[in-house]
Design a protein around this nucleic acid. Structure first.
Lengths: 208, 208
DNA sequence: CGCGCCGTTGACTGGCCAGTCAACCTGGCG
DNA sequence: CGCCAGGTTGACTGGCCAGTCAACGGCGCG
């Protein structure tokens, strides 16, 4: 089965085909539950070819994660330098992540489920990159606290975690089909996350 | 190895010893990476005994998760009925989860890493219980919106996810050793989460 | 036209590990 | 004291699967 919509026969980028197939298989069955032959089958390629392009099953997931995460890091790094209100920056990050999910839900599912929380396997392997994202977000918050845009009741590191955690949990909601998903919801989620984290839930917000 | 501090020889609760050992092993090596014999060794018990008390390796994790999650659900259910400000209720939930982590970090690590985000295995199995927690939190928010304590800019379901996501991400920070942890930090985190989600990060919060 | 390079193939293997099971205690009871 | 029940033991097996490797083919080049 597995009706691959990829243009069969194009000898050009077998490696890409394997990566794309891996995303689908990992998302469908999970990294541990799937066999390497599943990936090969899904890609319409011989088993051995996977090992021609990748040293191991792990390396396939590593590649997928790093490809995407590095783009995310670039986006945040660029934002970090710009002179814009912190709220806008956080909205831009949220938008990027939500759009990543809209564009390729399977890939984001794999990253969140298999890497970001995998404290005993891939999460450890990629801790440096993951930590960098948190750090960059914390910097945005810290700057905003310095110039008085944000309150200083909470440490920047902590705020960064709350913010990122809120985003990931919303994606998780979509992944588990606990939250409704669709074009409208995606756009809504962007403002909702930022509104919740920056504006808070309280009706009358006054400094204590 | 594995200097078990459990009172050896007490034939009374071998089952409990196995569960406690499993928590340690799952936390240390991860569910997929560990062998059933690791659990037996850690418990100081024969391999076969694990299968005397549990039908499968999966059932061990299922038991651990349900034991803890049901306590959490009870706490939230009770809170749901009480007549207290929503902010206090959310603080109580946060406190309970943070204290759970303080009391048994390994167990919470296992729950978060192996169940709560495991979209292709245990997360699916326990989706009903997980979803119930989200639903109960959403109800708290909905009630607060009705009586005017909370703004209505965000749906209750969404607010619940943001709130829960923030908590889990903080625990994840401790688990990965990305955030400093200790008595002081635990207490701080409780108010920080609630302050962030309810009060927001913005310095001057005014209704739009 | 022939040769070799390299992308490609897929059968095979070595190791690992969940789960089984027959035998072995031990303590309580007749 | 002998016998049974049920907790306890750990060697064993059956299946699975990551990774290997020898062989294949087709394309370009001499």
């Amino acid at each position: 089965m597995a009706a691959t919509p990829t243009p069969r026969g194009s000898a050009v980028e077998k490696r890409r085909m394997i990566l794309d197939a891996a995303v689908r298989v990992f998302a469908r069955q999970g990294f541990n539950q799937c066999r390497v032959s599943d990936i090969a089958d899904e890609a319409g390629v011989a088993y051995g070819l996977v090992y021609h392009y990748f040293r191991s099953k792990d390396e396939v997931l590593d590649t997928l994660f790093l490809e995407r995460w590095n783009v995310l890091l670039d986006v945040i790094r660029e934002l970090d330098v710009e002179e814009r209100p912190a709220r806008e920056k956080l909205l831009a990050i949220t938008s990027f992540i939500v759009d990543s999910y809209r564009h390729d839900p399977d890939l984001m599912k794999v990253i969140i489920v298999e890497v970001t929380r995998a404290a005993n396997s891939f999460g450890q392997t990629h801790l440096v990159q993951i930590r960098e994202a948190y750090g960059l977000i914390a910097e945005i918050v810290a700057k905003a606290q310095e110039d008085g845009t944000f309150k200083t009741t909470v440490t920047p590191e902590f705020a960064a975690m709350a913010f990122y955690g809120a985003i990931e949990q919303v994606l998780t909601g979509w992944i588990f089909d606990v939250l409704p998903s669709g074009e409208v919801e995606f756009e809504q989620a962007k403002t909702f996350v930022v509104e919740t984290i920056c504006g808070g839930l309280d009706a009358e917000a006054a400094a204590a």
